[in-house]
Computed example of a mutant assay.
Amino acid sequence: MLIIEVKPGENIDRALKKFKNKVRKVKQVQQLRENQHFTKKSVARREEIGKAKYIQHLKDTLQD
Protein backbone atom coordinates (compact mmCIF):
# COMPACT_ATOMS: atom_id res chain seq x y z
CA MET A 1 0.00 0.00 0.00
CA LEU A 2 1.36 3.37 -1.01
CA ILE A 3 0.95 6.29 1.35
CA ILE A 4 1.32 9.84 0.11
CA GLU A 5 1.40 12.54 2.73
CA VAL A 6 -0.39 15.69 1.59
CA LYS A 7 0.48 18.87 3.43
CA PRO A 8 -2.31 21.27 4.34
CA GLY A 9 -2.96 23.65 1.47
CA GLU A 10 -0.99 21.53 -1.02
CA ASN A 11 -2.40 21.34 -4.52
CA ILE A 12 -4.12 18.05 -5.44
CA ASP A 13 -2.22 17.95 -8.75
CA ARG A 14 1.05 17.98 -6.83
CA ALA A 15 -0.11 15.09 -4.64
CA LEU A 16 -1.20 13.15 -7.74
CA LYS A 17 2.22 13.71 -9.29
CA LYS A 18 3.89 12.38 -6.11
CA PHE A 19 1.63 9.32 -6.25
CA LYS A 20 2.43 8.60 -9.89
CA ASN A 21 6.17 8.91 -9.26
CA LYS A 22 5.98 6.58 -6.28
CA VAL A 23 4.02 3.97 -8.26
CA ARG A 24 6.61 4.16 -11.03
CA LYS A 25 9.55 3.81 -8.62
CA VAL A 26 8.01 0.84 -6.82
CA LYS A 27 7.24 -0.82 -10.21
CA GLN A 28 3.81 -1.81 -8.96
CA VAL A 29 2.14 -1.85 -12.40
CA GLN A 30 5.02 -3.84 -13.90
CA GLN A 31 4.68 -6.49 -11.19
CA LEU A 32 0.94 -6.78 -11.79
CA ARG A 33 1.48 -7.33 -15.51
CA GLU A 34 4.22 -9.91 -14.91
CA ASN A 35 2.01 -11.87 -12.51
CA GLN A 36 -0.88 -12.18 -14.96
CA HIS A 37 0.61 -15.37 -16.37
CA PHE A 38 3.27 -17.83 -15.27
CA THR A 39 6.68 -17.76 -16.95
CA LYS A 40 9.03 -20.70 -16.59
CA LYS A 41 12.42 -19.90 -15.08
CA SER A 42 14.21 -21.15 -18.20
CA VAL A 43 12.19 -18.82 -20.43
CA ALA A 44 12.75 -15.86 -18.10
CA ARG A 45 16.48 -16.54 -18.05
CA ARG A 46 16.58 -16.83 -21.86
CA GLU A 47 14.84 -13.45 -22.17
CA GLU A 48 17.24 -11.92 -19.65
CA ILE A 49 20.27 -13.19 -21.59
CA GLY A 50 18.79 -11.93 -24.87
CA LYS A 51 18.22 -8.50 -23.37
CA ALA A 52 21.79 -8.40 -22.03
CA LYS A 53 23.16 -9.34 -25.48
CA TYR A 54 21.10 -6.59 -27.11
CA ILE A 55 22.30 -3.95 -24.63
CA GLN A 56 25.91 -5.09 -25.04
CA HIS A 57 25.54 -4.88 -28.83
CA LEU A 58 24.25 -1.30 -28.52
CA LYS A 59 27.17 -0.33 -26.28
CA ASP A 60 29.67 -1.93 -28.69
CA THR A 61 28.26 -0.09 -31.70
CA LEU A 62 28.32 3.26 -29.89
CA GLN A 63 31.97 2.85 -28.93
CA ASP A 64 33.12 2.17 -32.51
Score class of each variant (00 low, 15 high):
residue 57 H to E: 06
residue 52 A to Q: 14
residue 57 H to T: 03
residue 51 K to P: 00
residue 60 D to I: 05
residue 55 I to C: 01
residue 58 L to D: 03
residue 46 R to P: 00
residue 32 L to V: 06
residue 33 R to H: 09
residue 51 K to R: 08
residue 37 H to S: 15
residue 35 N to W: 02
residue 52 A to W: 04
residue 50 G to P: 00
residue 61 T to W: 00
residue 47 E to D: 15
residue 36 Q to N: 10
residue 49 I to W: 00
residue 35 N to D: 15
residue 48 E to D: 13
residue 44 A to P: 01
residue 38 F to K: 07
residue 64 D to T: 10
residue 61 T to N: 05
residue 61 T to A: 02
residue 31 Q to L: 12
residue 54 Y to E: 01
residue 39 T to Y: 08
residue 51 K to F: 07
residue 45 R to G: 05
residue 63 Q to F: 02
residue 50 G to L: 01
residue 54 Y to V: 02
residue 60 D to C: 03
residue 35 N to H: 09
residue 44 A to H: 13
residue 49 I to H: 03
residue 50 G to F: 00
residue 35 N to C: 09
residue 37 H to I: 13
residue 44 A to L: 13
residue 49 I to F: 01
residue 46 R to K: 15
residue 36 Q to M: 15
residue 57 H to W: 08
residue 56 Q to D: 06
residue 32 L to I: 09
residue 49 I to P: 00
residue 57 H to A: 04
residue 38 F to Y: 12
residue 37 H to W: 07
residue 55 I to W: 01
residue 59 K to H: 05
residue 41 K to V: 14
residue 37 H to L: 08
residue 38 F to E: 05
residue 64 D to Q: 15
residue 31 Q to C: 10
residue 60 D to H: 02
residue 32 L to T: 08
residue 45 R to F: 11
residue 51 K to N: 05
residue 31 Q to I: 12
residue 38 F to L: 12
residue 40 K to D: 10
residue 33 R to I: 10
residue 34 E to H: 06
residue 46 R to N: 11
residue 63 Q to S: 08
residue 58 L to M: 14
residue 32 L to C: 08
residue 58 L to T: 04
residue 38 F to P: 02
residue 47 E to H: 11
residue 47 E to Q: 14
residue 57 H to K: 03
residue 64 D to W: 06
residue 62 L to H: 07
residue 57 H to S: 04
residue 47 E to K: 15
residue 34 E to A: 12
residue 36 Q to R: 11
residue 53 K to Y: 04
residue 63 Q to R: 11
residue 37 H to Y: 12
residue 39 T to C: 03
residue 61 T to K: 04
residue 49 I to C: 01
residue 54 Y to Q: 05
residue 64 D to Y: 02
residue 32 L to N: 10
residue 42 S to Y: 09
residue 33 R to Y: 09
residue 49 I to E: 05
residue 34 E to S: 11
residue 62 L to M: 06
residue 54 Y to P: 00
residue 49 I to A: 04
residue 64 D to A: 10
residue 63 Q to H: 10
residue 40 K to C: 12
residue 62 L to W: 04
residue 49 I to N: 03
residue 51 K to L: 06
residue 33 R to T: 12
residue 47 E to S: 14
residue 35 N to E: 14
residue 45 R to N: 12
residue 51 K to W: 02
residue 45 R to P: 01
residue 56 Q to E: 05
residue 50 G to W: 01
residue 60 D to L: 04
residue 60 D to V: 03
residue 48 E to K: 13
residue 61 T to Y: 00
residue 52 A to E: 05
residue 62 L to E: 08
residue 39 T to H: 07
residue 39 T to E: 15
